[in-house]
C-alpha cells in the first residue's frame, strides 16, 4: 500500500441478502486527514463506513467481495480478529451510546477488554482516563464526578465521552457516523473543533448528511450514489468545481 494511505478499498462489493448495497467500489482514504462521506439516504455511505471495522457483519445476512486493506492487511480475510480490528478502527455513532455505568468505567472498559488483568494497574488506568478526557476537553467538567453514571451527562458530553473512550486503545482510524446529528448548534461546533484537533493523530472518516459540515470540517470528500463512489476529491475542489454532473446536482441541493 502507498505511503500516506490509511484505507485502501479495491473492487469492494457488499450484499444484504440478495440486495447489492455497494457496487465494486475502489478508493484510497488518506492518513491523518478528515474524509467526509456524503450522498443521499441509501447511497451506501454508512454501509461503506461500517465495513471499515466490519460492524456490518452483525446483521448476519451480509456477504462481501473485494479487498479493504488497513495497515497492510486485508481486513476481510478470515484470519482477521474482529476484536483487534475494532481496537485499531474505533467508531463513534449517530447517537451517543455510553454504557450505563460510570464515566470512569466507560473509559476503562475498552482497556480492560483488550489487556489482560495482570497488566493493568490502577494508577495507569487513572492516568489513561485523565488523558483521554483531557484530549476531548471533558476533564474539567467531569473530574469531580467520575463515578457518576455516564448517561446523565449532556448529549454533547456523552458524545465527547464516546470519542474519549476510543483514545486509550490508540486507534489508527476513527469512524464517525453522523457524530453531530443528535446535537444542538453549539454542540456541533465543539465536536467539530474536537474532530479537527484529533486529525493530527488519527485518520478520521465521517459520514454526514450535513453538507455545510462536510465542506467546513473535512479535507477530502467522497460523494456516493446508489452504491457507487461518484467522486472522491479535495473538499474544496468538490464544492467549487465538481467533476461529475451528479455530484454538482447533489451539492447544489437539486436532489437528495
Amino acid at each position: 500500500m502507498q505511503d500516506g494511505v490509511s484505507i485502501d478499498i479495491r473492487d469492494y462489493s457488499l450484499w444484504y441478502g440478495k440486495f447489492q448495497a455497494l457496487l465494486s467500489v475502489s478508493t484510497q482514504i488518506k492518513q491523518g486527514i478528515i474524509t467526509a462521506m456524503i450522498g443521499p439516504s441509501g447511497c451506501g455511505k454508512t454501509t461503506l463506513l461500517r465495513s471499515f471495522n466490519r460492524i456490518n457483519e452483525r446483521y448476519g445476512n451480509v456477504s462481501t467481495s473485494g479487498l479493504i486493506t488497513i495497515l497492510g492487511k486485508n481486513i476481510l480475510d478470515e484470519d482477521v480478529s474482529v476484536a483487534s480490528l475494532r481496537k485499531r478502527v474505533g467508531m463513534v455513532f449517530q447517537r451517543p451510546n455510553p454504557l450505563p455505568i460510570s464515566i470512569y468505567e466507560n473509559i476503562v472498559f475498552g482497556i480492560k477488554s483488550h489487556t489482560p488483568s495482570r497488566e493493568r494497574k490502577r494508577a495507569d488506568l487513572d492516568a489513561a482516563v485523565e488523558s483521554a478526557l483531557r484530549e476531548v476537553s471533558l476533564w474539567d467538567a467531569v473530574k469531580d464526578c467520575l463515578d457518576d453514571r455516564a448517561t446523565e451527562l449532556t448529549l454533547e458530553q456523552q458524545q465527547k465521552l464516546c470519542i474519549a473512550r476510543l483514545l486509550p486503545l490508540k486507534p489508527d482510524i476513527i469512524l464517525m457516523d453522523e457524530p453531530c446529528s443528535a446535537l444542538d448548534a453549539s454542540g456541533i461546533e465543539r465536536i467539530e473543533e474536537l474532530i479537527t484537533e484529533l486529525k493530527r493523530t488519527f485518520t478520521i472518516v465521517m459520514v454526514t448528511h450535513n453538507m455545510a459540515q462536510a465542506r467546513r470540517a473535512s479535507d477530502e470528500c467522497i460523494f456516493m450514489l446508489m452504491g457507487e463512489i461518484i467522486e472522491h476529491t479535495r473538499t474544496l475542489d468538490m464544492f467549487m468545481n465538481p467533476q461529475h454532473e451528479k455530484t454538482a446536482m447533489y451539492i447544489e441541493g437539486r436532489y437528495g
Binding site: R215, R216, L236, F239, M240
Partner: peptide, 9 residues
C-alpha cells in the same frame, strides 16, 4: 476569498 466562501458559506 473563494475558498472561504466555499468552505464556510
Amino acid at each position: 476569498g473563494v475558498e472561504l466562501i466555499t468552505r464556510f458559506g
